[in-house]
């Protein structure tokens, strides 16, 4: 019984996180479509609900009722596994993301995160690195040229951008003396890291965009030259799982940007609770990603590799060197 009581807060937190994450794509698709529309000077979905607010529900319904098509020559088991595999890492990452200071609920202290890890930052980077497996499986199992090309691209892209991404956060870790995310946030109480580590932020932002395979680095699904890349052959509910994973990765990336460089929940205006302020910041970054998406064209593949290896990697190494010298 005591065991269950001890587990109860954890279970409640898990239920909340999973529930919110599963429902998150609904407002996000609406937001993305509206932002896309307004950037292109059109109103976007307007017909289902007030200003198209129910449009995501209609979309979801459509996707769920569509035919679930599996190509004849596909590797059926892997084909079925791939969307689920793509979905696991984003969910896993949110176990390590803190959403605020510990709060008092019914006299007991409850941390606003699932697991307070000492190696939290490294854990997040590692787990987001294995997000590529969903893409690889999808591309390989579809047994289609476009899909395989898409997953080959995503592998190369992931390997090249993981390195600058990992290096760019080292400056932050050095400043906070810890890889624990709550402590990294606590270390930014006076000054946000983006002021101290502008180069680190720049590299992390760009590498993160590439890691999440967002435009302008969405080479794996480049619909201009690869059909739809790795999910060319997917339809119906499996496709919607890929979309879900994509949105979760975007939110995760926004949360990481806020936690590492924009002070997490620090510096909230007097009337806002910390967590709400933190979520607002995340929303802002999600908006920035969408803004980027509808502004820039896709990079060419060789340009992508050149940016990763010739610009971001030296910049991140230089950043480590300079911040190390300054801290001494």
């Amino acid at each position: 019984m005591e065991y269950v009581l001890a587990l109860l807060p954890m279970l409640v937190k898990m239920a909340i996180v999973v529930g919110v994450l599963l429902l998150l794509p609904l407002p996000l698709t609406w937001m993305e479509r509206k932002i896309a529309a307004h950037i292109q000077q059109r109103p976007g979905p307007m017909r289902v609900g007030w200003h198209g607010l129910l449009q995501p529900l209609a979309d979801a319904l459509k996707l769920l009722t569509k035919e679930d098509h599996i190509p004849a020559e596909a590797d059926r088991r892997l084909f079925a596994m791939a969307p689920v595999v793509a979905l696991v890492p984003p969910f896993l990452v949110f176990t390590a993301i803190p959403f605020g200071e510990p709060v008092q609920v019914f006299g007991t202290e409850v941390t606003l995160m699932l697991s307070d890890m000492n190696v939290g930052l490294l854990f997040i980077l590692a787990v987001s690195g294995i997000g590529v497996f969903g893409t690889i499986l999808a591309g390989w199992a579809s047994n289609s040229k476009y899909a395989v090309l898409g997953s080959l691209r995503s592998i190369a892209q992931m390997i090249s951008y993981e390195i600058p991404m990992g290096f760019s956060v080292i400056g932050v870790v050095m400043l906070a003396n810890s890889m624990n995310l709550s402590r990294i946030v606590a270390a930014q109480e006076d000054l946000w890291n983006v002021v101290v580590q502008p180069v680190g932020f720049f590299v992390f932002f760009i590498a993160g965009l590439a890691e999440a395979q967002r435009i302008p680095f969405d080479l794996p699904e480049a619909e201009g030259d690869l059909g739809a890349g790795y999910h060319t052959e997917y339809s119906g509910i499996r496709f919607s799982l890929f979309m879900l994973a994509e949105y979760l990765v975007v939110v995760m990336l926004a949360a990481l940007n806020v936690l590492l460089f924009f002070g997490g929940w620090q510096g909230s205006p007097f009337f806002l609770p910390d967590t709400v302020w933190f979520l607002l910041k995340i929303g802002f970054f999600v908006w920035v990603f969408m803004w980027f998406r509808f502004t820039f064209p896709r990079y060419r593949y060789d340009q992508l590799m050149a940016i990763g290896w010739k610009v971001l990697l030296p910049l991140s190494l230089l950043n480590i060197l300079v911040s190390g010298i300054l801290m001494l």
Partner: peptide, 24 residues
Amino acid sequence: PFLAVIQIFVYVGAVMVLFLFVIM
């Protein structure tokens, strides 16, 4: 835990991805 994360980072995230790349 540090070693566990390194294992996922290097083995799963890099070495096995490299394997899959070569196989494909």
